[in-house]
Amino acid sequence: MTFRLRLTSWLFALLTPLSLHAATEVEFQSWLSEFKQQAVKQGISQTTVQSAFKNVSLNEKVLELDRRQPEFTRTFWQYFDKAVTDWRIVKGKYLYQKHRKLLDQVTQKYGVPGRYLVAFWGMETNFGGYTGNLPIIESLATLAFDPRRSEFFSKELMEALKILDQGHVQVSQMKGSWAGAMGQCQFMPSNYMRYAVDGDNDGKKDLWGSLPDVFFSAGHFLSNLGWQKQENWGREVTLPDGFDFSIADGKTARLLDEWRKMGLKLADGRPLPREDMQAKLILPSDYRGPAFLVFTNFSVIKRWNNSNNYALAVGHLADRIVGRPALSKQAPEDDAALNKEQMKTIQQRLNALGYEAGKADGIAGSRTRNALRAFQKDRNLPADGFPSARILNVLQNPIK
C-alpha cells in the first residue's frame, strides 16, 4: 500500500465517526422539528416549545447509559449494605423528627406513615441531596428519537412539556436522571402530571424545592398504588431446622397462622402476631441470609421500583428510622456477585450431572433453581436453590 493510500485510509477512519455523528444529529433535528409541530397541535404553547427545545441536541451520554448493561448483578448484601447505611439511618431519624408535623399531615390525608416517606426520599435522592443534573427535555428527546423505546419516551416528553407549559417549573430547573426521573422523589413526567400535589398552596407543584409538594406527592402516589393504612411492609423471620426452602418463592401467600404452624418466628424469637392477614416468604440471599414475611405494602413499594432488593431496603430503612433493630444476619465472607458466564457455568454443570437446568443462557429461572435444589438435596446441602459464588465453587470442585 502506498503512503498516499495509507494516509487516505487513515483520514477516512478518523473522520467517519464524526461524519456519522453529524448525520445522526441532522436526523435528530429533523425528528425534533416534527415533534415540535405535534406538541403545538396538542395544545403546548409556541413559547414553551421554543424555550424547552432551545439548544437541545442528541445526547450521546444518555444513549450510552440507556444501553449499558452491568456485567455483574449485585448480590442482596452488596445492594443492601450500600442502601441502608449508618449515615442514611441517622440522617433519616433526624429529618423524620424535623419534619414530623408536615409528615403527620400527609399521613392523615393519605394514610402513608411518615417513616416510609422519609425512607423513599432517602433512597431516591439521598434526602434531596442529589436529584440529577441532566436536562430532562434533552434526555427525553434523545430517548424518544431512539427507536428502541420511542413510543414510551415520546409520551413522557409530551408530559414534560405540559409541566413546563403549566408553569410548575422553569426549563433551567428541570433537571434529573438520564431516563427522565425528576425532583426529590424522582417522578417520571407522566407520574408528575397524575400524582404531583401543590402541598404548600403556592399554585405550583415543585418537586425540586418544596418539601410539602414532595411529601404530599409521594403520599398521593403511594395511596393510589394501593397502600394499606393498617399494615406494615413485612417482618424479618427465622425458619425452623429442615425447612423446605422451595416454599420461599415470594409468590405464594399464606395466612400468618399457617406460617406459624410451619415453625416460623419473628427474628427476635417471638411468635408471629395473631392477625388475620396473609404474607409471602422471601429469601433474597442463600440459606445463610435473612428471611422475610412480606405483606401487601411490600408489593406497593415494588410498584414504585419493581425490585425485591429495593423494596426490602425501603422497608427496613423505614423501620430503622423509628428505632427498630438491624437485621439479625450479616453478609458471609464469601458473598460475591455472579456474572452471566459464571451463571452459565452453573447451568452447564447441573446439566452435565443430569439435573435439567435448561438452556445455559446465564439467567437463573425457575428451571435452573429447581435443578439446583435437586442437586443440593442429593448432596445433603441446604436446598435453597440459590445460585451463588459458593455453590459455583461446589459444582466446580465436587467432593469425590
Rank of each mutant, 00 (worst) to 15 (best):
V56H: 06
S57V: 13
N59I: 04
E60H: 14
E60A: 10
E64P: 00
L65W: 01
P70E: 05
F72R: 05
T73C: 00
T75C: 01
F80T: 07
K82V: 06
A83L: 01
V84T: 06
G92Q: 12
Y94L: 12
Q97S: 07
R100D: 12
D104H: 14
Q108C: 00
Y110W: 14
Y110P: 00
V112H: 05
P113S: 06
P113L: 10
R115N: 15
R115M: 13
L117D: 06
V118W: 08
W121D: 12
M123R: 05
F127W: 03
Y130F: 15
T131H: 03
G132A: 04
P135A: 08
I137W: 09
A141Q: 03
L143H: 13
R148A: 14
F153L: 08
S154K: 15
S154R: 15
K155Y: 08
E156D: 11
L157T: 13
L161C: 06
I163C: 13
D165C: 01
V169D: 02
V169F: 01
V169N: 02
Q170F: 12
K175G: 07
K175F: 00
K175Y: 05
G176H: 09
S177M: 02
A179T: 01
G180Y: 08
G183N: 12
C185W: 00
C185L: 12
Q186P: 04
M188P: 03
N191C: 03
N191V: 01
Y192L: 09
Y195A: 05
Y195N: 09
Y195Q: 04
V197K: 12
D198L: 06
G199Q: 06
N201Q: 14
N201H: 15
